[in-house]
Nucleic acid binder design. Structure first.
Length: 429
RNA sequence: GCGAGCGUAGCUCAGUCGGUAGAGCGCUGCACUGUGGAUGCAGUCGUCGCGGGUUCAAGUCCCGUCGCUCGCCCCA
């Protein structure tokens, strides 16, 4: 075996079939985002580590980012998320931008994770944000955008749900249980882990962080109160808007959704795939009204979410929802090369056909026709064009439909029309 | 960081009780010198991940190591 340098751990090779899936995701995300009037943007892949140090949380930067010094010794990070870049970009042009601002992006991110199914060290992420509006209806729009994507790719509401909660509501409820505000962060973490631990371990963890049994009881009651949202004016308006936006079948209240990130201030949401008995987090987001001010801009409210490409790909794959034709033909027409003498004539014919708008490849060398036909087959070409001595002498070309096996010889001037006729019912052309 | 499983041909994998390496697919050629998918025949293909140990003999057993995968942890 030849020695081949191994790919970097946690990265993926995108062979044409995989790249095709990636492009399809990108395209679908583009269509959904643009249908809501969002504009595409992007930040740099490299950022100064300082950008993340302030806000993203210690662990994200120190433990899970790829960081390296450049030649002048500045610490550079491969971006682990987009929101800090977004916030910086907005702060830089805060007075010129038009609000409400609706932006989306799809690009690569890097995190130093331990790779496993649905998670790698290099992945793509869809980000969508609505900046400058502080209303439950804006939150609902983001939920609708997310649900719109699911609907478009065929993920029905029985396969995926967007669960919603509100941090202000939860803070109020915790205060009622006499949980001091400086413990809220810890309690949010506790709630975040409810689904991951069994009852016993979770209860032990709760007592460990200093909760009294009565408070634990209270939290348990809280976490099974599926009607709790009715106590929140914000969420009541949110769900009314969700109805109006036509996605109430996807969006559901859950007191157990809290999200790990510190900068969320109000509504938080998370899309979960329900396959068998496993719940997998597909996407998450929420409202972050203080973030802009925290990084030194003027105060500006925002709400947004992110969705990684790896989990959604796994889910779509399992449900058979990925596009069928994963290796689209590079060209529908192959121009064969009869012999050395006619090679350039074949190339020129290829040029003519390309100018006529067809996707055309020329066989690069004069091989036996049988071999060229086999090649045409394998790459999925529909038509083989033959330009041998007989055709050249008579100003003709032979066209063979590889699907029907029918071959016709037409005059050179009619070739384009004839091909167009043959490709009429071929969608890939 | 912890745990489990797996590393054999280009790919997917088999290899029994330890006895000197196999299949399918692919690729090349021929049947078929102006025509593809089928069929038949022939050919091509190996540091059995790496290092050590046990043994007359190791792909197989033991130890170590590296890599991959799947979980746990974590999850913006």
């Amino acid at each position: 075996m030849k020695k081949i340098i191994q790919p970097v751990k946690g990265t993926r090779d995108f062979y044409p079939p995989e790249k095709n899936v990636n492009s399809w995701l990108y395209q679908t995300i583009r269509e959904v985002s643009e249908s809501f009037g969002y504009q595409e943007y992007d930040g740099p892949f490299l950022e100064s580590i300082d950008l993340y140090a302030s806000k993203s949380g210690e662990e994200l930067v120190k433990e899970q980012s790829f960081v390296f010094p450049d030649k002048s010794g500045n610490l550079i990070a491969l971006r682990p998320e987009l929101t800090p870049s977004l916030v910086r970009m907005i702060a830089q042009q805060q007075q010129q931008l038009v609000y409400p601002l609706r932006w989306w992006s799809f690009g690569p991110f890097w995190r130093y994770e331990s790779p496993q199914k649905g998670r790698g060290r290099e992945f793509f992420q869809w980000n969508a944000d609505l900046i400058g509006v502080d209303s439950p209806e804006a939150d609902a729009e983001l939920a609708a955008l997310m649900a719109g994507f699911f609907r478009k790719v065929g993920l029905s509401p029985d396969k995926v749900k967007v669960f919603v909660n509100n941090r202000r509501l939860m803070e109020g409820e915790l205060a009622k249980l006499k949980i001091p505000s400086d413990k809220q962060g810890e309690v949010f973490r506790l709630i975040d882990r409810r689904g991951k631990l069994n009852d016993k371990d979770w209860g032990a963890y709760a007592l460990e962080i200093g909760l009294k049994p009565a408070q634990l009881e209270g939290i348990n009651t809280l976490l099974s109160s599926d009607d709790l949202w009715k106590d929140s004016e914000e969420l009541t308006r949110f769900f009314t808007a969700v109805d109006a936006l036509g996605v109430n079948d996807y969006v559901e209240y859950s007191p157990r959704i809290i999200r790990g990130l510190d900068y969320y201030t109000g509504t938080v949401f998370e899309a979960l795939a329900v396959s068998k008995d496993i719940r997998r987090s597909i996407s998450g987001g929420g409202r972050y009204d203080n973030l802009m001010a925290d990084v030194g801009g003027d105060s500006l409210p925002g709400v947004g979410f992110a969705m990684g490409d790896m989990v959604i790909s796994v889910v779509l794959e399992e449900l058979g929802l990925l596009p069928e034709n994963r290796s689209a033909a590079p060209a529908k027409i192959l121009v064969t090369v009869f012999d050395e003498e006619s090679l350039l004539a074949s190339y020129q014919l290829g040029v003519e056909l390309r100018q006529a708008g067809f996707k055309v490849c020329s066989y690069p060398t004069a091989e036996k026709l049988g071999k060229q036909f086999r090649y045409a087959d394998k790459v999925g070409a529909r038509i083989a064009v033959i330009l041998g001595p007989d055709e050249i002498n008579n100003q003709q070309v032979a066209l063979k439909d590889l699907q029907t096996r029918e071959q016709t010889t037409v005059s050179r001037s009619q070739a384009i029309e004839a091909i167009r006729g043959l490709l009429e019912n071929d969608p890939g052309a």
